[in-house]
């Protein structure tokens, strides 16, 4: 039995200690917003936050997540309101197939929490590990800039 905090709630999961956090979220907790893309930390589709840091959920065995705060894409909306980053994603019409976007949004959210006004280099570095096979990269960049603009003007 493993205990962890997911999106502000204490959960207990009965699984083997090597089960990656990704499959705990998807199969045990049925939080399917976090996606499986490669299983080797190459694509970023499974990005969640652990203690506010973006991590690849496919690379974190449940025992390493024990007792820590896990935040997934499902937590971003508050009282049915989209977060600043989600809103920017909608306004820039970023998603195509949408499968990678949970991971992209979690990465962008972490970036902007640490650095509300990132330059191009900081954006590139933060998003380097996140693949989009539909090619939404130009709009992801625009959405990050839009969200950054909102946040730096204190309109969150």
């Amino acid at each position: 039995m493993f205990k962890l905090d997911v999106n502000g709630q204490q959960v207990t999961v009965d699984c083997s200690e090597d089960t990656p956090l990704l499959w705990v979220l998807r199969d045990h907790l049925r939080l399917t917003g976090t996606k499986f893309g490669c299983g080797i930390g190459q694509c970023g589709a499974c990005t969640v936050h652990i203690d506010s840091q973006p991590v690849r959920a496919c690379m974190i065995p449940i025992e390493k997540a024990q007792g820590r705060n896990v935040r997934t894409i499902e937590s971003l909306k508050r009282d049915d309101n989209f977060s600043v980053v989600q809103t920017a994603w909608l306004e820039e019409d970023v998603a195509q197939c949408g499968y990678c976007q949970s991971g992209q949004i979690m990465a962008a959210t972490a970036l902007l929490e640490n650095n509300p006004d990132p330059d191009e280099e900081a954006i590139n570095e933060a998003m380097l590990g996140h693949i989009c096979r539909c090619g939404t990269y130009p709009r992801i960049r625009l959405a990050i800039k839009r969200a950054s603009h909102q946040l730096s003007r204190g309109e969150s």
Binding site: G33, I73, E74, L76, L90, V94, A95, Q96, G98, I105
Partner: peptide, 11 residues
């Protein structure tokens, strides 16, 4: 804008 986009940004 894409009609199903809201579902694609909140998981």
């Amino acid at each position: 804008r894409r009609i199903e986009a809201p579902e694609k940004v909140d998981g």
